[in-house]
Computed example of a mutant assay.
Amino acid sequence: MNDCLEQSEIGYCISRKFWNEGITSEALVSVIDYLFSCGFMRISAYHDVLNPASGKVMQKCGMQFEGIFRNAQKNNVGEFCSIAQYAILKSDPR
């Protein structure tokens, strides 16, 4: 596997009517498991700091908080926002 395929960044978006049903966590764990089975060593994700519920999903799936990047991305309405970065390594206990 070449270097560019050993890391992956993932994201998710789910309709508000499906929030708080565990769907996102279940899907994220499945994607993480699949990527690790394909040989990936590191998986990262980030969320707008104004959406802490997304960070809770990442933590629930075993991802660890790595830091905040100030005004690093544009949000869904085109405004710059700070993002919180999370990651999980294949070697992390799960």
Score class of each variant (00 low, 15 high):
Asn2Trp: 06
Asn2Val: 08
Asn2Pro: 15
Leu5Gly: 14
Gln7Tyr: 12
Gln7Ile: 10
Cys13Gly: 14
Ile14Met: 11
Ser15Leu: 13
Lys17Trp: 01
Trp19Gln: 06
Trp19Met: 03
Asn20Asp: 13
Asn20Pro: 00
Glu21Ile: 06
Ser25Ile: 01
Ser25Tyr: 00
Glu26Val: 00
Glu26Leu: 07
Glu26Gly: 06
Ala27Thr: 11
Leu28Trp: 02
Val31Glu: 02
Val31Gln: 01
Ile32Lys: 09
Tyr34Leu: 12
Tyr34Met: 08
Ser37Gln: 09
Cys38Glu: 14
Gly39Glu: 04
Arg42Thr: 07
Arg42His: 08
Ser44Trp: 14
Ser44Lys: 10
Tyr46Pro: 01
His47Ser: 07
Asp48Arg: 03
Asp48Ser: 06
Asp48Pro: 02
Asp48His: 12
Leu50Trp: 00
Asn51Tyr: 10
Lys56Pro: 00
Gln59His: 00
Gly62Cys: 03
Gly62His: 03
Met63Asp: 06
Met63Ser: 04
Gln64Met: 10
Phe65Met: 02
Glu66Gln: 15
Gly67His: 05
Phe69Ser: 13
Asn71Glu: 15
Asn71Val: 01
Gln73Trp: 05
Gln73Phe: 08
Lys74Asn: 05
Asn75Gln: 07
Asn75Thr: 03
Val77His: 08
Val77Leu: 07
Gly78Glu: 08
Phe80Gly: 01
Phe80Arg: 14
Cys81Gly: 03
Ser82Val: 05
Ile83Thr: 11
Ala84Tyr: 03
Ala84Leu: 02
Gln85Asn: 12
Gln85Met: 12
Ile88Val: 15
Ile88Lys: 13
Leu89Ala: 02
Ser91Gln: 12
Asp92Thr: 09
Pro93Gln: 13
Arg94Pro: 04
